[in-house]
Amino acid sequence: MAYNDKVLEHYEKPRNVGSMDKNDLHVGTGMVGAPACGDVMKLQIRVNDAGVIDDAKFKTFGCGSAIASSSLVTEWIKGKTIDQALSIKNKDIAEELALPPVKIHCSVLAEDAIRSAVDDYRKKQKGGVNASGS
């Protein structure tokens, strides 16, 4: 099966590969996996005081479509608020990359990664308050 040009473009030149300090209170780390194919995806967001995602990094071990999906997502969510980032749906990713039906789950993985990163960030923000109280 041949990959679509946009997938190849992201696969060969992935954007925003890397890691941020996961202990930083402004950083949310999302970890998701696809049990059926063994792919793992880590997505990190850094949120500034205005609630805007000012940086995003990813690391994905898996097929070209999974790498492209996460690379695309880091580009899309930079400069967005958390709520705007959460409104990105797997359908948008799959359409942009023209993923075939067997690769749709890669875009679902990327959507889940955003949610997981936001959850982690929000938990940390709450935890920070709790930690000082307990």
Binding site: M31, V32, G33, A34, A36, V40, K42, V108, L109
Partner: peptide, 21 residues
């Protein structure tokens, strides 16, 4: 069949496999 996607019910495990990778 094996689920294609799963919410990270076990984030510690995903972290472990990420470290191997």
């Amino acid at each position: 069949q094996t689920p294609e996607n799963a919410t990270p019910s076990d984030p510690a495990f995903l972290l472990e496999i990420m470290e191997w990778r």
